[in-house]
Amino acid sequence: DRIFMTRTEALEFLLKAHQTAVDKIGHPSHKQTPADHAAIEALDRLLLDVRARRVDQFQINASAAQIIVTD
């Protein structure tokens, strides 16, 4: 599946995904793992790359739809 978004929409989408990941590892019942921190770092890099126009398409994980940034 493909989803087309403007750059602004894609950045909002990534910010929400980032916040969800941060909230998940901050929850008291969740045991933090290196994979959790790696996922947040990957989202940080992706946010910067989309914002800087170095990336025009991405996929958060293998089961997610491919996001295509349109400007």
Results as ranks from 00 to 15, higher is better:
R2Q: 13
D36M: 08
A21P: 01
A52F: 11
A39C: 06
R2C: 14
D56E: 06
A38G: 06
L46S: 00
Q19I: 07
P28V: 08
V22M: 13
Q57D: 05
K16C: 07
D44R: 15
I25G: 05
A10I: 02
L43D: 00
T20A: 15
E41L: 08
R7S: 04
K16S: 09
L46N: 00
L43P: 00
H18E: 02
A65E: 08
R51S: 14
A10L: 02
V69C: 02
D36A: 09
I25K: 05
H27F: 09
A17P: 00
M5T: 00
G26E: 10
G26C: 10
R53Q: 10
F58S: 00
A62Q: 10
E9C: 06
D1F: 01
V69Y: 02
D49W: 03
D36Q: 07
N61C: 06
Q59F: 09
L15S: 13
D49I: 03
P34V: 10
D44E: 15
F4P: 04
D23W: 02
A39K: 07
T33R: 07
R45I: 07
D44I: 14
R53W: 03
A10T: 02
V50N: 00
A35L: 09
P34K: 10
H18M: 15
T33H: 07
H30Q: 07
D23Q: 11
A21Q: 08
L11I: 14
D56I: 14
V22G: 03
D56A: 07
R51P: 03
I40D: 01
D23A: 14
A10M: 02
R2Y: 14
E9D: 06
R51Y: 07
F13Y: 15
A21N: 03
A52L: 14
I25R: 05
T70W: 07
R54M: 07
T6Y: 02
M5Q: 01
Q32S: 14
I68N: 04
M5G: 01
D56K: 12
K31Y: 06
Q57R: 14
P28W: 01
R7V: 11
D36Y: 06
M5S: 00
A65S: 12
I3P: 01
E41C: 05
F58C: 01
A35P: 06
T70M: 14
S29R: 08
K24I: 10
D44H: 15
H30S: 11
K31E: 12
Q19M: 09
V69R: 01
T33G: 09
A35I: 06
Q19Y: 04
L46V: 02
A17M: 13
L14R: 00
I25S: 07
I25H: 06
R7M: 12
A38W: 09
K31H: 12
A17R: 03
K24M: 10
A35R: 07
A38R: 10
H37W: 14
I67R: 01
I67S: 01
H37T: 14
D1A: 01
A65P: 14
P34M: 10
T33C: 06
H18A: 06
T8R: 11
N61G: 12
A64E: 11
A35W: 06
Q32W: 15
K16M: 11
I60P: 02
V69A: 02
A52M: 14
H37N: 11
L11E: 07
D44Y: 15
E9Y: 02
P34W: 09
I25N: 05
V69L: 10
D36I: 08
L15D: 06
I67A: 01
A17F: 07
V22E: 04
Q59L: 06
K16P: 00
D1W: 02
A42Q: 12
Q19T: 07
R53N: 12
L11Y: 07
A35G: 11
D44P: 01
H37S: 09
D23H: 08
A62N: 13
T20S: 14
V55T: 07
L46Y: 01
R51A: 15
L14E: 00
H27R: 12
L46M: 04
A64I: 08
Q66V: 15
L47N: 01
K24Q: 10
E41K: 13
H27I: 08
I60D: 04
K16L: 12
E12H: 08
R53V: 04
F4M: 08
L15C: 08
R54C: 04
T33P: 05
A17T: 06
Q32C: 08
A42R: 13
L48F: 04
T8A: 14
D1T: 01
R45N: 08
V50T: 02
L43F: 03
E41F: 03
I67T: 02
A21V: 09
I3Q: 05
T70P: 02
L43E: 00
I40M: 08
G26D: 10
Q19N: 06
V22Q: 09
T6V: 02
A39G: 06
D44S: 15
D1I: 01
E41A: 14
P34A: 12
I68E: 03
P34Q: 10
F58H: 00
A64F: 11
K31A: 08
A38Q: 12
L43N: 00
I68V: 11
I40Q: 03
P34L: 10
I40A: 05
D49Y: 03
L48S: 15
T6R: 03
A39F: 15
D71Q: 06
D71F: 03
G26R: 14
V55Q: 04
I67C: 02
L11V: 09
V69N: 01
A38F: 11
G26W: 12
A39T: 12
A42S: 09
D23F: 02
P28A: 11
I68S: 04
R45S: 05
H18T: 05
G26K: 15
H27G: 10
I3F: 05
D36N: 06
R53H: 14
L11N: 02
L46R: 00
T33A: 08
I68C: 05
M5V: 03
A42E: 11
R7L: 15
K24C: 05
Q59Y: 12
S63M: 12
R51T: 09
Q66M: 15
I3G: 01
D36G: 04
D56H: 15
I3Y: 05
Q32A: 14
A38Y: 10
L48H: 15
A35V: 08
H27T: 13
R51L: 13
E41V: 12
I3S: 03
T70K: 11
F13V: 08
R2L: 14
D44F: 14
K16G: 07
A42C: 06
V69I: 15
D1E: 13
I3A: 03
A10C: 03
Q19W: 05
R53E: 10
R2M: 13
R45K: 14
K31Q: 12
T20C: 06
A52S: 11
M5P: 00
Q66D: 04
H27M: 13
A62F: 06
R7E: 03
Q57G: 07
I67P: 00
V55D: 01
K31G: 11
A42D: 08
I3V: 09
K24G: 06
Q57M: 13
T6I: 02
D71H: 15
R2N: 09
A38P: 04
Q66R: 13
K24T: 10
R53K: 13
H30R: 08
A62L: 11
V50Y: 01
P28S: 13
P34R: 10
E12F: 05
L43T: 01
L14W: 00
P28E: 10
D71I: 14
L47F: 09
L11H: 02
D49R: 03
D49F: 02
V22T: 11
E12P: 00
A35Y: 07
I68L: 05
R2G: 05
D23I: 10
E41Y: 04
T33L: 08
L47R: 07
L43H: 00
E9L: 04
A42L: 15
L48C: 08
E9F: 02
H37G: 07
